[in-house]
Design a binder for these strands. Structure first.
Lengths: 165, 165
DNA sequence: GATTAACCGTTGCTCCTGCAACCAATAAGC
DNA sequence: GCTTATTGGTTGCAGGAGCAACGGTTAATC
């Protein structure tokens, strides 16, 4: 193993090569993308990451429960709960009790919330566009399809309801 | 816009479709993979995520500074600092002052640290293998190459030294 | 060569986040 | 129908993580 006194193996007998280890690479890429995106919605709108995710989900789906949002984005339910409270306090989100099942609350954006969504969405898309601009359209489609496959499989692998609780 | 009283747009006029929005998808996939992997090194070895990353980096590169590790894995320098302190206290990592530049410290695994690395690495690889098993070898190579391109570009886009500070 | 700037790493502070326990409501079991 | 389990959501608590300010060291500037 340690043959030389001042060993410098430089990944000779490395067991895991991080640059090829998918979970590590996914984290690095997700962190880079998240950090960059966060600058937009944090600085300009004072939104946290979960806050933006809640708004984006409600912007797309109109009405959802906190549980749905958590499961969709692999967030802890307490994370979503607190994000929703903060957004409600700022008047961006409203809760409405579901009369069919009064355990859950139906969430929706207010007019103000939709305004932020409408203002933020194009900037988010522009960022994404810039990010994927190194790939050809064909490559983008391929990446998309591979990620879908992987995500479906990863969700299936996750212990029971780990797909967000 | 809101044409019907009980609107249910279901992504009709959604500005951002999360299922196709790359940063969101990257986060979801990274979270799924991280959560699953964390179970291995948290439960069996009491390691935090940054802790495991430090060990994996030193396992591969033998000797690195905290700064290197942070930049490599897009972690904040304080995160790495605290992870290293914890690992040192457990006797898994040693610091050695660099005599050429006494600002930085050269980090390395102890025998005990290497033992954990050796025990953990195969399990991590097995998990990765299981994760990518939905893809053919060809698809795995393609994904790998696309992710490399994207990551290089994302690193270049990041403000100056954001590639880990 | 003295001052200034840049850099590595640590730490106090604060906020975030996950866990687990909990409340309220519904569903299941008997 | 009453008890028990499950579920959606909240919250106290404790650990984790980012920010910014700092000490100590080296590089740059003049």
């Amino acid at each position: 193993m340690a043959t030389r006194s001042t060993a410098r193996k430089d990944e000779f007998d490395a067991l895991v090569v991080l640059e090829r280890f998918l979970p590590y690479r996914l984290n690095v890429l997700a962190a880079l993308s998240s950090n960059a995106l966060a600058q937009i919605y944090a600085e300009r709108f004072g939104l946290s990451i979960p806050g933006w995710r809640v708004i984006a989900t409600l912007g797309q789906y109109d009405v959802r429960t906190a549980r749905d949002i958590a499961a969709h984005g692999i967030m802890h339910k307490s994370t979503v709960s607190r994000a929703v409270s903060a957004l409600e306090e700022r008047g961006l989100v409203v809760r409405r009790a579901n009369q069919q099942d009064r355990r859950e609350e139906l969430l929706a954006l207010t007019a103000q919330g939709r305004a932020i969504y409408a203002s933020l969405a194009p900037q988010a898309l522009a960022f994404e566009e810039q990010l994927v601009s190194v790939l050809s359209r064909e490559e983008q489609r391929t990446l998309s399809s591979l990620m879908d496959k992987l995500t479906r499989h990863a969700r299936a692998m996750a212990p029971d309801g780990e797909a967000g609780q």
